[in-house]
């Protein structure tokens, strides 16, 4: 039993998961990620233009998930690696995203360190491997 994100639902968000596609508000010009119906900054519903994020950002806050704190679909990952790191990353264009940090150890990390997006395996559901963004130290 794990978080249920059907293949069609996942497919609708591959632009975000593989390429960090955001949207630029036609009202205030700021970049939203993930896409929303109203701008998260100014509330405008006047529409958006596609915006490609750079994948660069800084650690805003982070934690290390122990096996006891992992949801069931990540239990195997936690068991294999002992723990994994999750951070909120503030992207260079403004929005924040939550993602795992890879290829680093907890003691390497501090708030403000620069990170870069990578595509990695997220989990498996319905027999389909799901890929998406994670981050590594820049």
């Amino acid at each position: 039993m794990g978080a249920h994100v059907s293949v069609p639902m996942y497919q609708r968000s591959v632009g975000q998961r593989y390429r960090l596609l955001g949207q630029r508000c036609r009202g205030c010009g700021r970049v939203n990620f993930p896409p929303a119906g109203a701008c998260m900054y100014c509330g405008s519903r006047d529409g958006f233009d596609e915006a490609q994020l750079s994948g660069r950002g800084k650690i805003y806050t982070f934690t290390e998930i122990a096996p006891g704190g992992a949801p069931p679909e990540f239990a195997r990952q936690a068991a294999l690696t002992g723990s994994y790191i999750v951070a909120i990353v503030e992207l260079a264009e403004g929005p924040r995203v939550v993602a795992q940090l890879v290829d680093c150890t907890f003691s390497d990390l501090q708030v403000g360190k620069e990170v870069m997006m990578v595509v990695r395996r997220i989990y498996v559901e319905e027999g389909v491997v799901r890929y998406g963004y994670k981050f590594r130290l820049a």
Binding site: F62, T63, G69, P71, F74, V98, Q100
Partner: peptide, 26 residues
């Protein structure tokens, strides 16, 4: 743990490997 996580944002937060313990830890 599955049921404790269903009320968070499933599409993005949950798929980063977080339950509410992880969110409150952040």
């Amino acid at each position: 743990k599955y049921w404790l996580g269903v009320s968070g944002d499933t599409e993005f937060e949950r798929l980063a490997g977080l339950t509410f313990a992880g969110l409150f830890a952040l």
